[in-house]
Design a protein around this nucleic acid. Structure first.
Lengths: 203, 203
DNA sequence: GTCTATAGACCGATAGAC
DNA sequence: GTCTATCGGTCTATAGAC
């Protein structure tokens, strides 16, 4: 894999022993949130600095470029996804794991309705920001989730596991976009129920 | 509906009696293409002017703001969609019409792999460009296609036509995003075949 | 109607004091 | 390590000659 994200992910966090997290972590968290809400191109370094409560000029002490801040945001999303998948892995059957994944998506419907899927909108935007190769990093995060979904379908004895995994992730990304475009969280709820029935029917 | 797009759509085109289209049309066509390829925020007026072979400063004679140029691009996509739907309406059965729609999506897989779905990426980007209300205009274009799909499922006798229409359009938007993220047109082809089987199974 | 030149605003990044 | 002040570049939009 490319190094930037891995490097950031494995980096020691700077949370302080007492009080709120250190500035580096605050900047990464603020970047993840604000970039999702406003989009990469419309977000200025001042926006992120303000959200993190860090002086503008100080940002450059922690992240040399805007792209590095975007990388930190991607790493944050990757950590969130790893945590989710770890929790799901504790469920006994692949059907339950997949339906719990769908449930997690539905639980996020209000945020998705306002700003879209965090990973999906990033992937879409970074594709148009060719330099820096950050789009490859998001693709890898998505690929990891895709592989995990495929493993569940394989455990269900499906020979077409990859195709089904692509279909499930696409269904989520697509309904996220429609939920966002029409600002209707109900679309995500209805599609979630449909996907759960679909998963059961494949058992 | 909001007026900007409708106004532009119903506007008389300025194609000249001989030679290539007038500058206004060239700018609209260039905007649709370049905004799709580079994204709204990364595209400058100079980019569009260059692609349309119109001097930069002259752009403002035809479109007063960048948002109006984006509106012209949306109107272009709407015209394309209307033309596609009109062609599909000539097919005898709703199943054939829906499968032909899927076929049209698959035919565009190389462009989608490079830049994503033209309407979907616009919707995603304009959602983060709150001022101007252009996001509502794209939502309306998408809503129009959604209504047409729903009508096909209704003609097939499905009581859950709306839900199925949302699922089909979401499947397309999602596979477009994955096709773009992984730069693999094959994903679109495989999902297209799956969707055609799905449509047949609902008959 | 067409085009050049530039105003005015904003942003990413840096220099350097403390 | 922290912060201010600012530079250089870019972009939208306008003024005004032709």
């Amino acid at each position: 894999m490319r190094q930037p994200v891995a490097g950031i992910v494995s980096q020691v966090t700077d949370s302080e022993s007492e009080g709120r997290p250190g500035k580096r972590d605050r900047l990464a968290a603020a970047a993840a949130r604000v970039l999702h809400e406003q989009g990469v191109e419309k977000t200025t370094l001042a926006d992120i600095a303000k959200a993190a409560d860090v002086p503008v000029g100080n940002v450059y002490y922690y992240y040399k470029t805007k792209d590095q801040l975007v990388g930190a945001a991607i790493a944050t999303h990757e950590r969130n996804m790893r945590a989710l998948v770890s929790a799901l892995d504790r469920l006994p059957t692949p059907q339950e794991r997949l339906k719990a994944l769908v449930g997690a998506w539905v639980d996020q419907r209000d945020l998705t309705s306002r700003y879209g899927c965090p990973t999906g909108t990033l992937a879409s935007e970074l594709d148009k920001r060719a330099e820096g190769g950050l789009d490859r990093d998001v693709a890898e995060v998505m690929g990891r989730l895709l592989d995990w979904i495929e493993r569940q379908f394989t455990a269900m004895g499906r020979a077409d596991a990859r195709e089904l995994a692509v279909a499930l992730l696409a269904a989520y990304q697509g309904i996220s976009l429609l939920t966002n475009t029409f600002r209707d969280p109900g679309l995500m709820s209805a599609e979630g129920r449909r996907l759960e029935r679909w998963i059961d029917s494949l058992g």
